[in-house]
Amino acid sequence: RNRTTFTSYQLEELEKVFQKTHYPDVYAREQLAMRTDLTEARVQVWFQNRRAKWRK
């Protein structure tokens, strides 16, 4: 699989949710996936990576 390149809009939306919660539930991830036109799996992985970056 190729690396996903996120648009500025997608990143904005993802970051907005990340500010509210670092662990969005499956419903929140589904909503976000629909809004950003990404798969729920991509959203889930983005949050995993974002949490790792945040911990550093």
Rank of each mutant, 00 (worst) to 15 (best):
K56E: 08
R55C: 11
R35G: 04
Y27N: 12
R3S: 15
R42L: 12
K56L: 10
E40P: 11
P24Q: 00
D37Y: 07
R35Q: 05
F47M: 09
T5Y: 13
A33V: 07
R55G: 13
W46Y: 03
E30G: 05
Q44M: 11
D37L: 06
W46F: 03
S8I: 07
T36K: 02
E15T: 03
A33E: 04
F18C: 00
R3N: 15
L38S: 11
Y23G: 03
L11P: 01
R1L: 07
T5W: 09
E13I: 02
R1A: 11
Q31I: 06
K16L: 07
T21C: 11
R1I: 12
R55T: 10
A28R: 06
T36N: 04
R42C: 10
A33Q: 06
Q48Y: 08
S8A: 12
R50C: 03
Y23P: 00
E15F: 02
F47A: 00
K56T: 06
T39S: 07
A52C: 13
L14D: 01
L38D: 00
M34V: 14
F6K: 04
Q44Y: 08
P24W: 00
A52R: 08
V43L: 07
L14H: 03
R42G: 13
F47G: 01
Q48I: 04
L11N: 08
M34I: 09
R50G: 02
A41I: 08
W54P: 10
D37G: 14
N49G: 10
R42A: 14
L32G: 00
T7W: 08
K16I: 09
Y27C: 13
Q44C: 15
Q44P: 01
F18M: 02
L32N: 02
K20E: 15
R29A: 05
D25H: 03
E30D: 03
Q48T: 09
N49C: 10
R3L: 14
R29M: 15
T21A: 08
T36C: 09
L14I: 01
R29G: 01
K16E: 05
R1Y: 08
R55D: 10
V43R: 00
E30T: 15
K53M: 10
K20Y: 04
R1C: 15
L11Q: 14
Q10K: 03
V26T: 08
R50W: 01
E15M: 02
A33R: 09
D37K: 12
N2K: 05
Q10M: 03
K20S: 09
A41G: 09
Q31D: 06
N2T: 05
A33L: 08
Y9V: 13
K56P: 06
W54Y: 13
V26Q: 13
Y9N: 07
K16V: 04
E40K: 09
K56V: 09
S8H: 07
W54C: 08
E15R: 01
Q10Y: 00
E13R: 02
H22Y: 01
V26Y: 10
E12D: 09
L32E: 02
W54R: 10
L11A: 10
F47C: 02
Q44E: 15
E30M: 12
W54K: 13
P24T: 01
H22S: 06
K16R: 10
A33W: 04
Q31E: 10
A41N: 09
R50I: 01
T4L: 11
T5E: 15
L32P: 00
Y9K: 15
T5S: 14
K20N: 09
D37T: 06
V43P: 00
A41S: 12
S8K: 14
T21Q: 05
K56M: 07
R50K: 11
A52E: 15
P24Y: 03
S8L: 09
R50Y: 02
W54S: 11
H22K: 12
L14T: 00
K53T: 12
Q44F: 12
E12Y: 04
D25M: 04
E13L: 08
P24E: 00
R1V: 14
V45C: 15
W54L: 14
